[in-house]
Amino acid sequence: MKKNISSLVKNKSKMNYDLDLLKDMYKKMLLIRRFEEKAGQLYGMGKIGGFCHLYIGQEAVVVGIQSAQMEGDSIVTSYRDHGHMIACDMDPKGVMAELTGREDGYSKGKGGSMHMFSREKGFFGGHGIVAAQVPIGAGLAFAHKYNMNNNVCITYFGDGAANQGQVYESYNIASLWQLPVIFVIENNKYGMGTSVNRSSAGDNLSDRGKAYGIESEIVDGMDIIAVREAAIKAIEYCRLGKGPYILEMKTYRYRGHSMSDPAKYRTRDEVEQIRKTSDPIENIKVLLNKMGVVDKVLKDIDVEIKSIIADAAKFAQDSPEPSPSELYTDITIN
């Protein structure tokens, strides 16, 4: 599955990558990783409460797909949502302030880690019930089609979520009505403590679209170039009005399911192995090096990102708690 770097370099002309794009993708992945590390750290300090699901290891999926989107496309995902928000350019300060439950958070502190939204950036949440976002994504795609705006909806869900009935109800309708939705299965091998092979019958989750006549592809989700390439193809297919598309991203989460998961269902070795051999950020770093970007430049990027994150963390702790009157706002519109 894993492409080696030299083949990526060879593919470069075909993919018409320019260095700036690669650098941008590197930056964004790093921004997500550093954000998540900081979130983990603030959780450890008791500044963030409740459930907090980190995206570390999966960065290439969302950043690669985002690089293939256009203005106006919509995105919807689960509770493991920090990376998706940063990828669609939501402000790390607002995201972090939501994590600390403060007034300047994207949901005024009322949603927390799992529930953030930005209509402006086309980010439709942040959903806590496994697979609930899948029909919602098909519905957003329905609206795109209805409004004839040529946009698509990227609907992310996990391997565990892929077993929920509402996924197949969505597949059926999306295919029947040719909705412009890309179902992205982020297959990180585990749904909480259950590995895919203990929860899912059949060989590949992506195969399950076949019964509904939905095109699909399995992608190395640790390789951002492969992700982007597949996303370009899928999104173009959708925009042409050919109906939905399934991308199964083989990826991996390095941390526990949430902060309180001891992760005894896998070996330390398994995690280390993947980290060493297929880390998405290390992968693109090697590619950038090969393309002549020197370590000093990468180091400078790292320093810049660390300061963005430090600012976000400070902002998130300085922002006041929401006013008690917020308890009763936003329940109904009138």
Partner: peptide, 12 residues
Amino acid sequence: GKDVPMPYAANL
């Protein structure tokens, strides 16, 4: 409980 969805913020 109050007649509102449960907020995340500690104080709320």
